[in-house]
């Protein structure tokens, strides 16, 4: 096709590769979603539209357990990590640089820099020692681990929002007789809120997605949805996994859409 004008930013073959990339990126996911509605026992032959596998997953107590555990874990970890990340973001941005600030940055971003498998192994060893010493087998280990690796994901959007915020707004509020707490309550917090919600959502998705660390540190009978799926994939693949995957996918897309709407620049 002869271009009518010389397009500055066009590079030969780039568009074709890009479109192909998007097709290849989405095809397996779309196939997976379509086959989750397959009526047949086998998952490679299409035998008609049905919610059969969703019903199977729904009736499976293990799946139900794992779902509840996953959601409980994701909500708890997201709330804890967002709360502490908000405080840390308030403590580390927009103030005179203080001794140890770099150390705090490194600590907060540390989970992003260490391979998951290494963190998983470290927590396995550490928690095994605590288990031995205390006999505690509860969800505390998973909650602590998830809260920890969610912190950088919650921290990033909150910090970005804070850095984009005009410092003089707080000065103006204190000039207008607001106490430190009132400044936070009436000015900082409302302006920060979209960032906090975005952080909450990213932390939630991050926790929901985790496989490796959870597999290593969960006690017996503490399967989350991803670890349950990993166990199933190893045995025999059934349409049930398709159905669970599709449901998780839908949740992720919904949350991401919400996130985008929240962080989109207004005004």
């Amino acid at each position: 096709m002869a271009a009518r004008s010389f397009s500055i930013s066009r590079l030969p073959g780039f568009n074709a590769i890009a479109v192909l990339v998007f097709v290849v990126l989405y095809l397996p996911i779309i196939v997976l979603v379509i086959y989750s509605f397959n009526a047949g026992r086998s998952i490679s032959d299409w035998e008609g539209l049905s919610l059969h596998w969703y019903a199977v997953a729904w009736d499976n107590d293990d799946v139900k357990d794992a779902t509840i555990r996953s959601l409980y874990l994701a909500v708890t970890a997201a709330v804890i990590s967002t709360a502490v990340a908000t405080m840390a973001a308030l403590g580390t941005t927009r103030r005179r640089a203080f001794r140890g600030q770099t150390f705090i940055y490194v600590m907060i971003n540390q989970p992003l820099m260490v391979p998951e498998i290494v963190t998983a192994v470290a927590l396995l060893i550490f928690f095994a020692a605590i288990r031995q010493a205390t006999g505690y087998q509860g969800m505390g280990y998973l909650v602590a681990a998830h809260a920890a690796f969610c912190i950088p994901f919650a921290y990033l959007p909150i910090r970005a929002r804070l850095e984009g915020m005009d410092l003089t707004l707080e000065t103006a509020a204190s000039d207008l007789y607001a106490s430190d707490w009132q400044v936070f309550r009436h000015v900082t917090f409302p302006i920060l809120l979209p960032g906090i919600l975005a952080g909450l959502m990213l932390a939630f998705v991050t926790s929901l997605d985790d496989v490796v660390i959870t597999v290593f540190i969960k006690s017996a009978g503490q399967d989350t949805l991803p670890t349950y799926m990993l166990g199933q994939i190893r045995r025999q693949v059934t349409g049930e996994i398709n159905a669970i995957s599709s449901a998780l996918l839908a949740l992720t897309v919904a949350l991401l859409t919400l996130f985008f709407l929240l962080t989109r620049k207004r005004d």
Binding site: D166, T168, L169, T171, D175, L176, S179
Partner: peptide, 20 residues
């Protein structure tokens, strides 16, 4: 005396109006 306890108010160069 902190700014919130001074009967003195400021008009800022950037106005600093609360956007929300």
């Amino acid at each position: 005396l902190p700014p919130n306890k001074r009967p003195v108010n400021t008009v800022f160069q950037s106005y600093a109006l609360f956007p929300h």
